[in-house]
Design a protein around this nucleic acid. Sequence first.
DNA 1: TTAACTGCAAACGTTTTGCAGGCGG
DNA 2: CCGCCTGCAAAACGTTTGCAGTTAA
Lengths: 164, 164
Amino acid sequence: MSGLGNVTVTASPKEKFREYLATQKMRLTPEREIIVDEVFDNHEHFDAEELSERLRSSGRKRVSRSTVYRTLESMESAGLIRKVARPNGSEIWEHDYGYPQHDHLICRKCGELQEFHNDEIKAILESVADKMGFFMDGHRLEVFGLCSECRRAPVRRHRKLDMI
Amino acid sequence: MSGLGNVTVTASPKEKFREYLATQKMRLTPEREIIVDEVFDNHEHFDAEELSERLRSSGRKRVSRSTVYRTLESMESAGLIRKVARPNGSEIWEHDYGYPQHDHLICRKCGELQEFHNDEIKAILESVADKMGFFMDGHRLEVFGLCSECRRAPVRRHRKLDMI
DNA sequence: TTAACTGCAAACGTTTTGCAGGCGG
DNA sequence: CCGCCTGCAAAACGTTTGCAGTTAA
């Protein structure tokens, strides 16, 4: 993960974070380091509470909830992580930096998140934005429906009215 | 609004709501009618609080906040309205029923929401979903950046780091 | 008669904040 | 020494819930 001896042009998330913090006259403190490490130690999606729990059980020095919230926000500003919406309206974090651009298929039934990548979409969005005088610097796209697993299931309850 | 003598195939939002409520053994009460009327009286986006405020100042009979929340949720289930995410993470409602499918450009600076419509995107999403065995029944797409107004402004503060 | 419905106030879960104290450049 | 940073506890925020009384089929 540290990339020592690695000749790729991209800095590690931690380095990128440190650079960003410097521009804000902020420091990469032990707490912030713990958080950025834990976040990039695996590629799971998470929310602040889950991350706190992971930190707690990871045996690392304890970090307060406030600091977790504050740090995640900084990491977002630094371009390290971004938010994804769940179909129920709640939001979770995922890696952004160093991770290939992608969007999500989200199952309304089991909540499962599948990633997909498509270049055409970005191109279309660029051109749409351009036509409207809008400068695009990012997007968020979620496709809702039923995953292959759940559409096969015989359940026919349909609590939601069919979408028009 | 009532569409009397109108031969279009679509029912009014109120009628659609009444039909949905019937399937749930629920009634179109005066309060619910007030809310659906107010929501479809203009095409603005809104959140529960704003809507409550509009109701208050509209001179109509007062409706409690709980009822507003409960009714909006029913209206979503009925397919009348849907949620859109703001860049800051909060969410607002917008019309869905009877309104052409569209997505949004959202300005990070002034928060302005511009709608756009593009058929290609939907087609691409259908094919992507299909390829992954996913049954798509909707999507949510927000493009972030700077609106034509704000990109022109000389301000160079940039509190957010450039997105990667 | 009874089930749906409302307004109220209290509870809720999540996130933010003010602050006193600690720490590093 | 100054200013960033932390943990804590309290506050704030938007939303949901339990309940007792009301309404309408």
